[in-house]
Simulated scan of single mutants.
Amino acid sequence: MPIADLGTVVLDCPDPAALAAFYAELLGGEVDASDDAWVDLKGVGVAMAFQKVPGHVPPQWPDPARPQQFHLDLVVGDLDTAQKQALALGATLLEDHGGRHGFRTFADPAGHPFCLCID
């Protein structure tokens, strides 16, 4: 039985609305730009979101000094239980937002960030 469901693929970028518009033209879907720091693209299969990162340095393929940048939002039913299971698998807790936002940020064993989120 899986611990979580894939909720959203999130891409870091300097201009979330512009990047969401690009992907909307490429993939279809509907842009929800109600927040200038986080923009959703809905109706394209797996949910996509675009997150503003000040000072964003874009990836440079295939330069390992500037690797690909994104994180996964994984939807869980119980945040505390999922956290215990993720930690047992080798995840590292990076930030516990104190339950204020309904998610916690972790790193996978290779250091890639992901969030466990309440649906």
Rank of each mutant, 00 (worst) to 15 (best):
G28Q: 05
P67L: 09
L79G: 01
H56A: 09
P109M: 06
H71Q: 03
H101L: 15
H112I: 09
Q68M: 15
V75D: 13
A20F: 03
A24C: 07
H56F: 15
P2D: 12
E30G: 00
C115P: 01
L79K: 05
H101F: 12
P67I: 08
A47K: 09
L19Y: 06
A107R: 02
A4Q: 11
L11H: 08
G90A: 09
A4V: 10
P16C: 02
G45T: 09
A33Q: 07
G55K: 08
F106E: 07
L72H: 07
I3A: 09
K42R: 10
F70E: 04
A49T: 05
L74T: 00
P59R: 02
Q68Y: 13
A4W: 15
F103R: 13
H56P: 06
A86C: 10
P62L: 13
D5V: 09
P109L: 05
D35R: 08
D12H: 14
A110L: 11
A91C: 12
V10L: 14
L89P: 07
D63Q: 03
D36I: 02
F103I: 04
D12C: 07
R104H: 02
G111D: 08
A88P: 04
M48R: 05
M1S: 14
W61H: 13
D119V: 10
D80K: 04
K52M: 08
R100E: 15
L79E: 05
Q83S: 14
A17G: 12
D119K: 11
W61R: 09
L116A: 10
V9Q: 13
A18F: 01
D36W: 01
D5M: 12
D36E: 09
R100M: 12
G111A: 08
K42M: 00
T81F: 01
F103T: 01
H56I: 08
L41I: 02
A110V: 06
D40N: 04
D80Q: 08
